[in-house]
Nucleic acid binder design. Structure first.
Lengths: 176, 176
DNA sequence: GAAAGTAGTTCATTCATTGAACTAGCTCAC
DNA sequence: GTGAGCTAGTTCAATGAATGAACTACTTTC
């Protein structure tokens, strides 16, 4: 999205949000970032997104302060900022709606409070302890609607199929 | 969005949702529908969207069961179905994020429980009575961040600036 | 029956996306 | 250091979608 420059609507925060995260691919990139993807090549491979588009999207996400680009000794990483992490309710709501109407076998991913294993309700509250669970304490794991991938599972996809905390980096080679 | 046909990701309900509501303009149309817009011409005028695009979006929303097209005595109306109303948490989350990061003067629109006037918290719960307020009982009104429109306010924009219940149809001529 | 309104189409132009190939810089082994 | 291999990011031709303005077809109203 975002063409002539934006949506015209000055009085709607929905329009304003969509100007930042409403373009094709953008929320998929953000989702991957929640799932621990940080490297350019991993985003590209995982999403099947053209590299030129990925470059453009990451650039605008960084410019908007949703992600930050960190270069450390030749290694480039993209991470969500606080503003980016604040997108979680949006991502959760979209996953919830898709689960409800397009996943008859049940939710594709289950979220839990990693501390006590309690499931999270639609508002992100732990059904065990009642707390509103902060993003880094959310564990995500395959749910009843999850369909194991056919074909060779690359390391990143494999990590996606394993219970893990949000934001925890995907490891691309076994730590040595 | 949604080009070659879709996103490839079979295991993510976020991708699935974006295939339905992720294209440019789609969520703006849905928002207008929550605000009571039902007529083709009102969507077109309110959003400044090219009519050809509007036709295409409405067609796919109807096909997906998010909206329904009703023709009654020459009058055509588009309305949200239950599945469409279930998009409210997504719309709310997007408005919330935009308010938080792009509306320094405060939220652009306030939502209340129409029965008792209580404000709704981010989860959509009434701060007066504690109930999770169903969409038709939500009243929306200009908030502290709302900026009155310059220029001639057409009837639809005027309705948007007045406290009203969600889904309640926008009247285009005073009932006679 | 003429005027005005509405839903929707058509079409040339502009712009974004696609996908594949390419560049440039770094790391590591020898 | 030289070469192999990896990674971030660019380039570019082809495709497809968005834009905007004009137009069609149908209704209602007076």
């Amino acid at each position: 999205m975002a063409l002539p420059s934006t949506y015209a609507d000055r009085n709607c925060s929905l329009a304003r949000s969509l100007e930042v995260v409403g373009e094709r691919w953008t929320l998929m990139i953000v989702r991957d970032a929640f799932f621990g993807v940080r490297r350019f090549g991993d985003f590209a491979a995982q999403l099947g997104i053209p590299r030129a588009v990925l470059t453009s999207r990451l650039k605008s996400l960084v410019q908007e302060g949703v992600m930050i680009r960190e270069e450390d000794g030749g290694v480039v990483e993209y991470r969500l900022t606080e503003k980016g992490v604040a997108l979680w309710p949006i991502v959760r709501a979209l996953m919830g709606w898709g689960d409800a109407f397009y996943s008859p076998a049940g939710e594709k991913r289950t979220t839990r409070h990693d501390e006590d294993g309690g499931r999270l309700d639609p508002d992100g509250r732990c059904e065990e302890c009642g707390a509103l669970v902060p993003v880094p304490e959310i564990r995500i794991e395959p749910g009843p609607g999850y369909e194991p991938q056919p074909g060779g599972p690359d390391p990143v996809s494999a990590a996606f199929a394993t219970p893990r905390r949000l934001l925890e980096p995907v490891m691309r080679q076994p730590a040595g």
